[in-house]
């Protein structure tokens, strides 16, 4: 039952990413060219509403479906890694017009060539894992 629920949440995510056009290469180019409010609107609404969600979860100690209090961990304070890694990802985000979530959703949309992008992304992660100790964090 629990397994099915993650698949269902994923399906909702896939539909949302497609119908919101967040998986569109056009939309990402438009965003980086500051020519449309579309992507800024999506992320802006999500962040403001998300902030409210986190506030409520913390303030009222909301519990999971399983009954445990939701634990929200802070992101590690690796500022150098965030800036350098973030910039490297930004290059790829613009090139492919996709971030990790949309990559998977695009496959479902029938863009088979994206499988090559995912395979390349796995190679990128593998290389990061190998070089991790030599990189500034």
């Amino acid at each position: 039952m629990k397994n099915i629920s993650f698949i269902l949440i994923g399906i909702l995510f896939g539909i949302t990413m497609t119908k919101s056009e967040a998986i569109s290469w056009y939309r990402i180019q438009e965003m980086f060219r500051f020519q449309s409010i579309h992507m800024y609107g999506i992320i802006g609404v999500a962040v403001i509403l998300g902030a409210l969600l986190f506030y409520i979860i913390k303030k009222y100690q909301i519990k999971t479906f399983g009954g445990a209090i939701i634990q929200i961990k802070d992101k590690p304070k690796n500022y150098k890694a965030a800036l350098l890694g973030g910039s490297i990802f930004g290059l790829g985000w613009s090139m492919t017009g996709a971030c990790p979530g949309p990559l998977y959703v695009l496959v479902g949309n029938g863009y088979w060539v994206i499988l090559i992008v995912i395979l390349s992304a796995l190679m990128g992660t593998l290389c990061y894992g190998l070089l991790r100790n030599k990189l500034p964090h």
Binding site: N78, A82, L84, G92, W93, S120, L122, M123, G124, T125
Partner: peptide, 14 residues
């Protein structure tokens, strides 16, 4: 290359 940068960059950035 684009895919590689996504995989490398996102994990580096966490």
């Amino acid at each position: 290359l684009g895919g590689f940068l996504i995989g490398f960059g996102t994990r580096y950035a966490g």
